[in-house]
Simulated scan of single mutants.
Amino acid sequence: MANKGAVADWSSGLCDCCSDANSCCLTIWCPCVTFGRIAEIVDQGTLGCCFHGTLCCLLGAFFHLAPSLYTCIYRKNMRATYNIEGNQCVDCLLSFFCFNLSLCQQYRELKARGYDPSAGWEGNAHLQRGGATAAPAFEAGMTR
């Protein structure tokens, strides 16, 4: 789903958190979950949400600024994948000084590009293939 055409802006501003209250609350209370979901989509399912989220949480427990560095790398990767305007310096500054705002913006960007970050990479691939969202119905008659 990468856009290799013209350079684009982010679909929403850094401070547009109120436009998606659910992801805003998730990021405030569980930023590692938000990051895990983002990273799984950006990595195209190479490593799962739980791996990225747990690593981000563990890094934060032992090295205060490490989660910011980790999320900075994925912000840069997301920009490169979708050809979004910006540079590494801004990515790092936002990740260090506006950690939650940056994660919220990335989460909204994935949603704007048609992803459901909570479904993970495989879930989104299934949805894009037109997969069923419910179990098939069947009629069961009485048998002896």
Rank of each mutant, 00 (worst) to 15 (best):
E139F: 10
M1I: 09
T46F: 11
C25M: 08
L65T: 02
D43V: 12
S11W: 01
S95I: 00
C32P: 04
I84R: 00
G53T: 01
C104H: 00
A21I: 11
L103A: 02
S102M: 02
F99P: 06
L110R: 01
M142I: 10
L59H: 10
H52R: 05
W121N: 04
A135T: 06
P117R: 03
G5K: 06
G53C: 08
L103R: 04
Y74W: 05
C18R: 07
E40H: 14
A112C: 10
S11E: 13
C15S: 13
H64M: 03
V7K: 08
N87H: 08
L14E: 04
G114Y: 01
N87V: 13
C18H: 05
D116C: 15
L59M: 10
L26I: 11
I84K: 01
T143R: 12
I38R: 00
L55P: 00
A132G: 08
N87K: 02
L55V: 11
L26N: 04
D9E: 15
L69K: 04
A134M: 06
N124F: 13
C18N: 12
I41G: 04
L14S: 09
L59A: 04
A61C: 13
C98G: 04
C56E: 12
A112G: 11
S11V: 09
Y70E: 02
F96P: 01
R113A: 04
G141E: 14
C15V: 13
M78I: 05
A66Q: 02
C104D: 06
T71E: 05
I84Q: 02
E139H: 11
Q105E: 08
A134I: 10
T71K: 03
G86S: 01
A134S: 06
E109C: 01
A140T: 12
L127D: 12
T46N: 13
G45P: 05
L93W: 03
G114A: 12
C15D: 15
G60V: 13
C104I: 12
V90P: 00
Y74Q: 07
R113V: 11
A80W: 01
G130S: 09
